[in-house]
Structure formats: structure tokens, C-alpha cells
Design a protein around this nucleic acid. Sequence first.
DNA 1: TCAAAAGTGTTTAGCATACACCCATGC
DNA 2: GCATGGGTGTATGCTAAACACTTTTGA
Lengths: 253, 253
Amino acid sequence: MEYKNELRRFIQEELHQYLSHVSVDLTIFGFHDGQLKVLLLRWKGSDDWSLPGGRIHRDENLDAAAYRSLQERTGLREIYLQQFHTFGEVERYKNFSRQETAVRLGIPADLHGELFRRDVSVGYFALVEFAEVTPTPDRFTDECRWWEVAGVPPLLFDHNDMIRLALKTLRQQLSYQPVGYNLLPEKFTMPELQRLYETILGKPLDRRNFQKQMLAYGLLERLEERKTGGAHKAPFLYRFDREKYGKALEEGI
Amino acid sequence: MEYKNELRRFIQEELHQYLSHVSVDLTIFGFHDGQLKVLLLRWKGSDDWSLPGGRIHRDENLDAAAYRSLQERTGLREIYLQQFHTFGEVERYKNFSRQETAVRLGIPADLHGELFRRDVSVGYFALVEFAEVTPTPDRFTDECRWWEVAGVPPLLFDHNDMIRLALKTLRQQLSYQPVGYNLLPEKFTMPELQRLYETILGKPLDRRNFQKQMLAYGLLERLEERKTGGAHKAPFLYRFDREKYGKALEEGI
DNA sequence: TCAAAAGTGTTTAGCATACACCCATGC
DNA sequence: GCATGGGTGTATGCTAAACACTTTTGA
């Protein structure tokens, strides 16, 4: 009941503050335990999951709106965020029909029209450091948590498509833009960086060639320290040279 | 006067048929006389130019809306059309302020607000065969014609930025996707294809290496004929293998 | 002392670059 | 015949891929 009132209040009092017919959706990638993860939200009183997203204030830049949603869900600032595609099909209900979606989410019939108007949605993906994130649900959701990308269930709307395309874009970028700064802790080992690349690309890489290539980019600084406590030979720790990394992001590797 | 009434009629009777706060803009590239060209519109009663664009019907897919505008301006079907970026800044008036734009276009003060609402605009670029195009102005414009990309004047809104980014995207795609099918006539010579590449990339290419590379892609079929009438040795004519070309577009070269 | 992981260097192959000669055509 | 442009082949260099041995560590 409270939820339905919340929906009504949102529609009547707040929806007009935002641009109509446009929204943003976020594919937030994190890396943990050798797995690529994505942050999903479970809707109130349902078992259904979707990507986080949000609307755009009337006086807010598009990028700023995406950034705001990202901060709200993760608590993070200064993260890598990039637009990758705008989804504009009339029928964006893929796994579940529009009607079925409304029922599953317990949206009262008289609110369907207002709440599920047709939107053009601008898709962004973000790369964040797993350990730094505090997953936080929004007003319409009960739970916010990481899912392994490979194990994501059928999502609401066209969000499985979004994740697929975000990942494809990320893979392509890997070859001409540096990745890692925002997905790894400040200090990391070469094997850790390699696991990240292997996970994103979905294929094994040669240890020696990988190291050569990474070092050749000139973005890494090897520290004196080694990572101890592992069961085997202690690997060196590395750190990204922030300035060079930023420049490489701008201009390509 | 007629123009102002047209504007009023549009706002009152037609604007509601479209999604609000979203539009599409098109950068239509053509190739002629060894120059890369872009199709621009001159607004009624003004000397100011902009990219063609349009709004999205409430029951129309985003891509379909872009495609429809493209057909209306060029008369063409079956052209290469691709989304490249969504422009969502609040202030998209770059060369001329919002106020100045209204004055230059002769928009009555009482219509500023309605007609120049803030829009998020999805940018598409298209590649078309120059000779096949019939440039056609829309209801708000007097003239539609090709401009050399390098000589485009300061445009309305953020359209110079759009062209710049469209061109950048096209250049990047050149290296992993085939280009040419939609920019050249069905039969063309290797030197013609090379001019096209050189024009897009803005730099000269080696004749011999270019030919080797193009043929290595396996997308070209050499015809028996040669192009006669030129002042020099008759070059062979080539044609794209449409099936392989389509496959290469999907999967990358 | 052994298994598992990490550090390092060399060889090889493929692709992109650089480059030179011959042929056809119009003036 | 000569200037201009078109057709073709080969040598070279660089980057990416393939690959092996040694070192460190905890069990």
C-alpha cells in the first residue's frame, strides 16, 4: 500500500520535474573474485531485476544525470562513465510484455500509462572499483547487489540487450583505450590485471606477452613492494600513472 | 507572415504527435569531385544553416524516425545509417545564443519557449551516393544543399560539434568496417575508392598498398570492363560483393 | 622437495609500410 | 615522345604471437 502511494506521489508531484520520454540506464561493471560483475536492482515486492537508471532534470545535462544515478547507487565519485548507445524502440519490453511487467511489479492499472510511458533511453556503462561500492537501492527497489555478468537472469525491459551491448563496447575499447584504473584497487599485481582483461575478453591471454604489452603502454609504475601472503612467489605491485592514463584515455593508447 | 502561421500551426496541431524532449539529427555524408560533403538546410528567411533532423512519432522506433528524415531530405531508401552519439547538454546553443538564434530565424517571441524547448538529440550519420540524392528542404527551411565538410560555416545549435564527432566516428570505423558501398556508384575504379578513403581520412595513401589491402578484404569483385574516356590508362571497374559486404559490416573486417 | 605461480627473453610469423618498374593514353 | 595516371611485385620493419626456463614460496 505504501508502495502504491509512493508511486502515485512520484507521478503527481515529481515526474514533471524531469524531461519526459527520455531516461538513462546504467550498466555498472565491477570486478571481484576473478569475475566481471554488474550491479542490478530488485523491484519492491517482486523477484524481478533491472539495471539502475534515472530521469533527467529539466536543467541537468544528460551526462550529469547519468553521473548522479551512478553516485546514488554506488556512493562513488570520480568513476569512469561512458555513453554507449541510445535505445529507442517503441517496444522495449523483451523478456516480459508491458502488461506482464506491470503485473509482476504490482503497478496499479491506473498508473501503467503514466509510469510506463514510452521512453528513449540513453545507455551508459561505468567501471567501478568493486570494494569501494556501497550498493544502494532506489525508491522503487528493495535490493541492490552485484551479479556475475555471465549469470544475469532475464531482466525487465530490454536490459539484457543493454548489458550485452555495453560489454561488447567495453571489449572493443580494450584494444585502443586503457582499462583497469577504475576496476582495480590502487595497487595491484600484473596477474590481477591480467585476470581482469581475461575476464572482460572472455579468453585466456599469454602471461609474458600480456606483461610486455602492458608495460609498453607506459602507463604502469612498478612499486618496490610485492604482494605478500599469497601461497607462491610474491608478485610486484603496480600502480597506474594517473596523468599518463588520463592522456591515454583521451587520445587512445 | 505565412511562415509564422506555419510555426503556430505546427506547435498547436502537430507537436503533440511527437515525443517531447527528444529529437534526431542527421549528418549525411556524400562524396563528389574528390570532396567529402555534408547536406545542410538553410532556414526560411535567414542565412543560417543547420543539419537536417526531425522528431520521433509516438509509435515510431528511434531508428525509423532517423530513417524517415533521411528519406525525406534525400529521396533515398536503403542507405547506411548509424547512430553515433546522443547530445544532451542543457545548453546546446554554441555559435549563437538561444536568444540570438530565435532572432536570426525570425521566431516570434511567444513561440520561443515551445519551439526551442530543451531537447536531447540522438545523432546519426548516413553515407549516401551523391548522384542519387535529391536534396529537399523541410517545412522550416528554404534550401537544402551539399557543403564541403571542410568549408561548413558556423551552424545553428551544436551542429558543428555533431559533424566533427560524426566524422571522427566514421574515420575510426574505416579501419574495422568496410565503407564505400553507399558512397560510391555501383561500379567504380580503385583510384576512385582510394580518393574516398583519402578524403575521409584526410591524408594520402599509398596506391599499391591500398589496392592490396582492399582486395585482401575479399569484398571486391573486379569486372571485365574498364573505365574508358579518361585521359590516361583505363582503370578496371570494381563492384562490392553485396553479400560479403553485408557480412563484413556485421562482424567487422 | 615439490607443486604452483611469477619473473624474464628469444624466436617466428604476419601484416603494414616503403619503394620501382612497366603499360596505356592523350596531347 | 612525353607527361600523367594505372597496373603489379618485392623487400623491410615492426608488432603480435608462440614458446621455455628459472625463481620464489608455502605446504
